[in-house]
């Protein structure tokens, strides 16, 4: 279980005026600003939960992950991961934890992945039997068997992420922090990584905290999401709830037999109308849904009519823009 109470982290960051003069001035005196990366963040995550951490760039997601992984120290607050203070860096905790950073390699670039795995086996004291079993299982599921003896730097981005994932999960961690695991991957590779994580979570029930800019990752993997804006937690709950509560916009898509000849005037509050050949799309809000529907049904003869929710990306974007509930 992960427990976070009133977590705060501030950084002192140096600033420099732009241009050559700014650089010269910076040699003599620097101005510092205090940046609040996390402000009063509290949350609990139960064993077996997969939680999506969402926020814009610089919102504080990675800072939170780094604190939970014991990499950096918080300014204030209490954190307990499986009953340990992560920044005590207790080996008992670190043996149960894994951190995968999409933008940062953990394996040695100049060596084949198997060489790095042999080192990880000793570091995590993985018994021979389990090690063999894990190598076989993970290589098989991730379909990466043939790449394990190739220098990591010679692998494609997708293959590299797969071998990184494999390395991080060799010791069957109970807590997994995934920071942008699908960044830069093509659609096939993204799908493969997502599928793997889903199965892994189902089979071993670890806590998984996932940060990703790809909403597809979050949508497919996480039932629960935590939204962070400017260091503050603004939403913690089910993804479906956020969509139901804050997905105000609806799209009515009507298909006609032929392209409409005459389009009667639409009251502005009912939404925005777009016509593309025999397809009419009316973007409206939930409050005016019935009025919009009336307008369409009265004026056109549909062969098909659907009501669409806005994509989750849009819902979250609008939620973050508004600053939460």
């Amino acid at each position: 279980m992960i427990v976070v109470k009133n977590l705060q982290k501030t950084f002192k960051v140096s600033t420099k005026e732009p241009g050559l003069m700014g650089s010269i001035k910076g040699l003599v005196s620097r101005k510092y600003i205090t940046k609040t990366a996390l402000n009063n963040v509290s949350l609990n995550i139960k064993q077996g939960e997969m939680v999506g951490l969402i926020g814009a760039n610089g919102a504080g997601k990675t800072t939170l992950v780094k604190i939970l992984a014991g990499i950096i120290h918080p300014t204030e607050g209490v954190v307990s991961v499986l009953g340990h203070n992560p920044w005590d860096r207790d080996d008992n905790l670190r043996r149960q934890m894994a951190l995968i950073m999409g933008q940062k390699a953990q394996l040695w670039y100049d060596l084949p992945a198997l060489d790095s795995y042999m080192l990880l086996k000793e570091i995590y004291q993985i018994p021979d039997q389990l090690y063999k079993q894990q190598i076989e299982f993970l290589a098989d599921v991730l379909q990466i068997k043939d790449q394990l003896k190739v220098q990591v730097r010679k692998l494609s981005l997708g293959e590299r992420m797969k071998v990184e994932l494999m390395g991080a999960l060799l010791h069957r961690p109970n807590v997994v922090y995934l920071d942008e695991p699908t960044i830069g991957l093509d659609l096939m590779a993204q799908k493969a990584v997502r599928g793997f994580l889903k199965n892994y979570q189902r089979e071993f029930k670890p806590i998984i905290l996932l940060t990703s800019h790809y909403m597809e990752d979050i949508k497919e993997l996480c039932e629960r999401v935590v939204l962070i804006k400017s260091g503050e937690l603004i939403y913690d709950g089910a993804l479906t709830t956020i969509q139901a509560q804050f997905g105000e916009k609806k799209k009515l898509v009507m298909t006609l037999e032929d392209a409409p000849v005459n389009i009667p005037e639409l009251r502005p509050e009912l939404g925005l109308l777009e016509v593309d050949k025999n397809k009419i799309t009316l973007s409206t809000t939930r409050n005016y849904l019935s009025g919009s529907m009336d307008y369409l049904l009265k004026n056109f003869q549909p062969t098909d009519l659907t009501i669409q929710d806005p994509p989750i990306e849009e819902v979250i974007e609008s939620f973050l823009r508004k600053g939460g509930a």
Binding site: A69, G70, R94, R95, M97, L99, K104, Q106, I123
Partner: peptide
């Protein structure tokens, strides 16, 4: 460049 992270996460 943050490469120290890996050593801080490993149990050693």
């Amino acid at each position: 460049d943050g490469g120290l992270n890996r050593y801080l996460v490993w149990p050693l």
